[in-house]
Design a protein around this nucleic acid. Structure first.
Length: 594
RNA sequence: GGCCCCGUAGUUCAAUGGAUAGAAUAGAAGUUUCCUAAACUUUAGAUGCAGGUUCGAUUCCUGCCGGGGCUACCA
């Protein structure tokens, strides 16, 4: 790793010049800004006490030492306290050759650690919407990034398949469904069930209106409308195991799962393990007992059990109701323990919206207080809501963007643009269909992933998603174009690797590109540490942009110098390889032609 | 009220405490007999307000203003 080589050398320089030891970890190098000459910049301000001279002089001392005592620092300059280092062309060429020839480039060796990533977590009463897409794409991309970093990754989906909201759609179906099946209704299973969820809400609202008009207090009406009482009754029956209720539940859930499977398949997302809340909602009571024993929890007079987190800056929090039944926290404690029993992880990532920030803070604190060694590895990958121009999405008010519809629309838009641009000449139908999907889904995934997860983001469905500029298709296009160059090169007789000692003077564009390529592994690590695919998204975009600039400026084939030609081809191949890997980590495929 | 997150060009997004705050898009002006114009050049445009910490603050701290979330014996 070039950065480490330089840091190592700076450390030696300090030892030799000032008889002072600084560790490689303490040294910070930053990329040199475009306005200055150089590739890496070392800031001398923090070391003035050691060098016992002014910033400018300190920089010169270190710079000239590096220039004389290493074979890869070819030049240096000092501006104020900033020491800018230039890397020799030969070194750059060697680095490129290594990347181009390394079959394993981009894959980090296994680190023997296990990580579990939980994401998606749909409710089985309605189809997936735009918010779920952000969740799914984040979870999927994070899993891929962790995998590339050498972790053994277990992707799990904890389906929320029980509770009052599930009973709502069941009830409406029972009343108004006339036993219709998804096939009869011409709907995907999840959409059919979602239809009855909406139906329930309409009925419920109507009943509330009636009650309010006849003089009932709105808050009372909310709790006493016949529909909601029936739903509660149904939940009770379900918990008691009433065969008819359970049968209905199984039938509707089965349809929903079929629908979800189609959506997941379309998105290219798989899970290693599915958990159902109907299987886990009673867990956690033994942990409550354990906590009482260890005096982590305490019991109030009414028998309810609490944890006091005021020392951690939080409140007291209920972990078991007075009647001995579980709450959300109880269940999540139990599920956490069960997940660790199933797959003894070092890290466990929960991809869940930021409205649950507090819940997870509490959960993780509790697990720590219970003495679980793995609690330090628990991480809530919190993400912000996706807003529409009209404001917040509300499923009950029909202002949601449906996931299936949106995916379909994206493919349609991709098709329209592609055909208009005349890109499909010479493609058969299956190839072009595959391309539309790749581009449509790629645009959507890239759009949702490029933003810092924790921030709210805006999605404008009217404008659809752009295919130009900072987008997935821009990167896919760059890959397709490089692929065309590589194809053409194969018909010529050009060496597949080059002799780095014969490469002439490199242009700034070329150096910029190789520099960018060398940062791939760093970016990969960083993305995993911050659990943010956005970092990788930015990287691939910058790389594609750099390549386009280079491509515009340098004729690749118009050249008699075979060494230069094979160098540029290697540069192109390495770029394509890296783009493909980086996009792959986001769950986005890249085409060979488009 | 308490706690948490966010405020950056018209708009959508960037910026490990570093140099003159980057892109994209919309606007203006250009580039296709030449490896794919979903591209490339040029141009104009921004850190909510007030303090503090220091060689240096979009970044860290305090207060204020604005937006959102959590604050259930719901999940």
């Amino acid at each position: 790793m070039l950065v480490n080589e330089i840091k190592e050398a700076i450390s030696r320089a300090f030892k030799s010049l000032f008889d002072h030891a600084i560790t490689v970890e303490d040294i910070s190098l930053q990329p040199t800004r475009k306005e200055f000459v150089g590739t890496y910049t070392f800031v001398t301000f923090p070391y003035l006490k050691v060098t016992k001279s002014n910033p400018e002089e300190s920089g010169k001392l270190v710079g000239s030492w590096l220039n004389e005592n290493t074979d890869f620092i070819s030049n240096y300059n000092v501006v104020k306290g900033f020491l800018n280092l230039e890397i020799s062309d030969l070194k750059w060429a060697k680095i490129l050759n290594d990347i181009d020839e390394d079959e394993r480039f981009g894959k980090v060796d296994s680190n023997g650690k296990k990580v579990m990533v939980e994401f998606s977590s749909p409710n089985t009463n309605k189809p997936l919407h735009l918010g779920h897409l952000r969740n799914n794409f984040l979870g999927d991309a994070t899993s891929r990034i962790l995998d590339a970093n050498g972790y053994e990754v277990m992707k799990v989906n904890l389906v929320n398949d029980r509770g009052i909201h599930i009973c709502k759609s069941m009830l409406a179906y029972q009343k108004f469904g006339n036993g219709e099946t998804p096939v009869q209704a011409g709907l995907k299973g999840d959409h059919l069930v979602g239809k009855y969820y909406v139906k329930f809400d309409q009925e419920y609202k109507r009943e509330m209106q009636e009650l309010i008009q006849s003089g009932t207090n709105p808050k009372v009406a909310e709790k006493e409308a016949p529909s909601i009482l029936e739903a509660q009754e149904m939940l009770k029956k379900w918990e008691e195991g009433d065969p008819e209720t359970v049968g209905l539940w199984e039938k509707l859930n089965g349809w929903v799962y079929e629908g979800f499977d189609q959506t997941y398949a379309a998105m290219g997302i798989q899970f290693d393990k599915m958990y159902q809340e109907s299987q886990t909602y009673l867990l956690g009571k033994d942990l409550v007992d354990e906590g009482l024993e260890k005096e982590v929890f305490f019991k109030k007079e009414d028998g309810s059990v609490w944890v006091d987190l005021t020392e951690e800056g939080m409140d007291e929090k209920l972990v078991l109701r007075g009647d001995g039944t579980a709450v959300y926290m109880t269940q999540d404690m139990g599920t956490c323990e069960m997940k660790h029993d199933d797959f003894p992880f070092e890290k466990s990532v929960y991809v869940v919206g930021n409205e649950q920030d507090y819940h997870f803070k509490v959960l993780f604190s509790i697990m720590k207080k219970l003495g679980r060694a793995y609690s330090d590895g628990l991480y809530h990958l919190s993400y912000g809501m996706v807003d529409l121009p009209s404001g917040k999405m509300k499923s009950r008010e029909g202002t949601v963007v449906d996931a299936d519809d949106l995916l379909q629309e994206m493919v349609g838009t991709a098709k329209k643009h592609t055909v208009e641009l005349g890109k499909i000449e010479g493609m058969d139908e299956s190839e072009s269909k595959e391309l539309y999907k790749m581009l449509g889904h790629g645009a959507l995934k890239y759009f949702l992933l490029k933003v810092d997860p924790k921030k709210r983001m805006l999605f404008n469905p009217q404008e659809s998603i752009e295919f130009q500029g900072h987008t997935g298709p821009f990167i896919q296009y760059t890959h397709a174009r490089i692929s065309a160059i590589v194809r053409r090169a194969k018909t010529l007789e050009v060496a597949t690797s080059f002799d780095s000692s014969k490469v002439g003077q490199l242009t700034q564009r070329e150096i910029d590109l190789i520099y960018r390529l060398t940062n791939y592994i760093d970016t990969l690590r960083e993305s995993a540490n911050d659990y943010s695919p956005a970092i990788m998204a930015q990287y691939v975009y910058d790389l594609a942009k750099d390549y386009n600039g280079f491509y515009q400026e340098v004729p690749i084939f118009n050249e008699n110098n075979k060494d230069a030609l094979s160098f540029r081809l290697a540069l192109s191949r390495s770029t394509a390889k890296t783009l493909k890997m980086g996009m792959g980590l986001l769950g986005i495929n890249v085409p060979e032609r488009m």
